[in-house]
């Protein structure tokens, strides 16, 4: 394998950088996965499946706080992207780590929520609502975690001064994770809509 990538990677017949295009496709396939899950949830809810009144038992303030945390971290990743655009690698590095920190706070709150649920004897199998709650937030949390790991890896490259454009790519991904949460929050935490 030669050290430089193939010529194909450098071409942009559409004018969109290849990596960004790929992230868009990745995210669009994810949209259908979360979309499918959310659609199933709504189908159950509107068909009056038992257990959905339990939505009042979710810790709304924790969810709201997490929404706030994620939105803030979206802002910091935008700033990181902006810094990277201007070639300011240290600032970009710093903001990426702010974002990772945001993710960490999010995960801690999540862990607290899960812990208190399980302490109250509410688990995966309590009823369909809780099954959905844990599946959806769990899958989302995995995405948060994955995002944090990737951002961590990207940040060190950026500090060394290469692959600066990746700040934008992780940013795209992070916005997606954010948007998914913005869908999950109302349907899981705000009981009567």
């Amino acid at each position: 394998m030669s050290m430089h990538g193939p010529i194909a990677t450098g071409r942009t017949a559409t004018g969109i950088p290849t990596a960004r295009l790929a992230v868009w496709w990745l995210l669009s396939s994810e949209v259908f996965i979360f979309g499918g899950l959310i659609a199933c949830f709504l189908l159950f809810k509107f068909n009056g499946a038992p257990g959905f009144q339990d939505a009042v038992l979710t810790v709304t303030w924790a969810g709201a706080f997490n929404t706030f945390v994620l939105l803030t971290s979206s802002l910091t990743i935008v700033l990181a992207h902006d810094a990277a655009e201007h070639g300011d690698k240290d600032r970009a590095f710093k903001y990426i780590w702010f974002t990772i920190f945001g993710g960490l706070v999010f995960m801690c709150v999540k862990a607290y929520e899960y812990g208190s649920k399980i302490a109250h004897g509410v688990g995966f199998t309590t009823n369909i609502f809780w099954s959905f709650y844990f599946t959806m937030t769990g899958l989302h949390a995995l995405h948060v975690l994955g995002g944090m790991v990737i951002m961590g890896m990207v940040s060190f490259d950026i500090r060394k001064g290469y692959n600066l454009h990746r700040a934008e790519l992780v940013g795209l991904y992070w916005h997606f994770v954010d948007i998914v949460w913005i869908f999950l929050f109302p349907i899981l935490y705000i009981a009567n809509f």
Binding site: S29, V31, F32, I33, F34, G35, C40, F124, S131, T135
Partner: peptide
């Protein structure tokens, strides 16, 4: 891509 997403969601549910 567009059709398999919901199935992946379903497969997660089935697996659980």
């Amino acid at each position: 891509m567009a059709s398999v997403g919901p199935l992946v969601a379903g497969a997660v549910m089935l697996f659980m």
